[in-house]
Design a protein around this nucleic acid. Structure first.
Ligand SMILES: NC(=O)c1ccc[n+]([C@@H]2O[C@H](COP(=O)([O-])OP(=O)(O)OC[C@H]3O[C@@H](n4cnc5c(N)ncnc54)[C@H](O)[C@@H]3O)[C@@H](O)[C@H]2O)c1
Ligand SMILES: NC(=O)c1ccc[n+]([C@@H]2O[C@H](COP(=O)([O-])OP(=O)(O)OC[C@H]3O[C@@H](n4cnc5c(N)ncnc54)[C@H](O)[C@@H]3O)[C@@H](O)[C@H]2O)c1
Lengths: 214, 214
DNA sequence: TTTTTATCAATATAAATATATCTATTTAAG
DNA sequence: CTTAAATAGATATATTTATATTGATAAAAA
């Protein structure tokens, strides 16, 4: 295939995109206008070839000896990531992790707005976390309708995660971000992104082991 | 290569290991003794070939028509993951995320014990989060010496992350789990595992986009 | 202007990972 | 005891991702 299929950006490339975006923005505030893949690679501990390959998915082209136009590049990456327009989300489970995510200001830069929390715990109903109200599960329907919720975030204990997923799906949410360590069963048209700290820890443990063997 | 090199387990395999482990343990409590890769694959939405490939890294062999011995399999995976023996960790930054991680009971099953918190904020010193005390940064040295700390967890704001990394490294910690959205500069012999929610969100956004195009 | 140099772009190769196929083995059923 | 079915294990192939190579191009230097 000689032409790059814009629709199928490799996942590893996609995962590097936010880092590019943040880095490029940091250059932008310094008043820099052009950036070369060599420079990017150098600062992000990558190799230039990989950066160039990744940038190809923006459909932009750079100028030899000069590099890419910073503004256009940022715009293109933000477009790819969907960071240029906000998606509304609701988070189910306002416990330790749920509160942390609700309080996190960084998501705004990533095009994500968690507009409300859902929790079983009656004591939490009506309370606010970082300016976002907590509602009982029965309220999901209303919340979704009134706020164009696209994403459901799951931070309830593992045993309730499937229940919450079902509730989200029943109310028309088709994208789930799941922090509970379980595999969710959902209809084929629902997208699930699992966040699994155990997986990361597994990789870290292994690397520590190998490090010790040297 | 016909013989599998035990030392170099592919990262994707490694990332699946915790899910296997949890699943197998759930079978174990039901009194099941043997499990086939077909059954595992079925329940975890994987394909049997992949499960079999992954299990090869345990160096165990299963019996046709029967499967693998559950106990041995769990033991082998826990050994690979290092979950059979505890590693002590310290977490720097007892804010929203830091508190959530400190409070998380799941890590105990993953061989990780976060024994203390480190924070700049004087108001937090001496306080406890989930039974773990919070200390000022100057205390790291003592903590490391007294508790055989192997892992430093970084949940401070991005701008302080490098500072914390340096402090950890200076005190002999050679493995970092970094939740701040920055790339850390560390000596070559220090292992860094970056946890990047932005990356995951990028993948999710993209999948939502593709979903809509259908 | 000509040469040099940095960098992009296109193409090729390699490595890692996932999937498929085939054979041998074991057990359970007949 | 024989046979059929299930499944591990070995090997082969395909796919995806990473890296290397080569040539073209534009800017800066000679
Ligand atoms: N805390 C962490 O650092 C961490 C790390 C990794 C994964 N996780 C996972 O995230 C999830 C939440 O962890 P946590 O530490 O925040 O737990 P938590 O117990 O602090 O919070 C869970 C919250 O969910 C609510 N809840 C329970 N059942 C519910 C239901 N059916 N409907 C609505 N709300 C319900 C509870 O009231 C509580 O507020 C767990 O699945 C955990 O495994 C947490
Ligand atoms: N909260 C989230 O859900 C979330 C999600 C993804 C990433 N992160 C990242 O995790 C990090 C922490 O996020 P947070 O929401 O917990 O922030 P926070 O502001 O709630 O907590 C930060 C804590 O670090 C402490 N701190 C600051 N500088 C320090 C220093 N030099 N030494 C020691 N302690 C110091 C502060 O006192 C505070 O307690 C950030 O880098 C953030 O980008 C957070």
């Amino acid at each position: 295939m000689t032409q790059i299929d814009r629709q199928s950006i490799p996942v590893p490339t996609l995962r590097r995109m936010p880092a590019y975006c943040n880095y490029l923005k940091s250059l932008s505030v310094k008043g820099i206008v052009y950036v070369s893949t060599t420079a990017v690679a150098n600062d992000l501990n990558l190799i230039p070839i990989q950066v160039r390959k990744d940038f190809e998915y923006t459909r932009l082209s750079g100028k030899p000896k000069i590099g890419y136009n910073l503004e256009l590049l940022i715009e293109a990456i933000e477009y790819i990531l969907g960071w240029n327009k906000m998606s509304n989300a609701v988070i189910a489970g306002v416990g330790n992790l749920g509160k942390a995510l609700l309080s996190y200001q960084g998501f705004k830069n990533y095009g994500l707005d968690i507009i409300a929390g859902i929790d079983q715990d009656k004591k939490k109903h009506g309370k606010e976390v970082a300016g976002r109200k907590v509602y009982p599960p029965e309220q999901i329907g209303v919340l979704v309708k009134e706020n164009k919720i696209g994403i459901g975030i799951i931070t309830v204990p593992a045993e309730s995660a499937q229940l919450m997923a079902d509730l989200f799906v029943k109310n028309g949410i088709t994208a789930l971000w799941n922090f509970a360590p379980v595999r969710l069963n959902v209809p084929a048209d629902v997208v699930v992104q699992n966040e699994n700290l155990a997986s990361s820890l597994a990789v870290l443990s292994q690397r520590i082991k190998q490090q010790k063997e040297k």
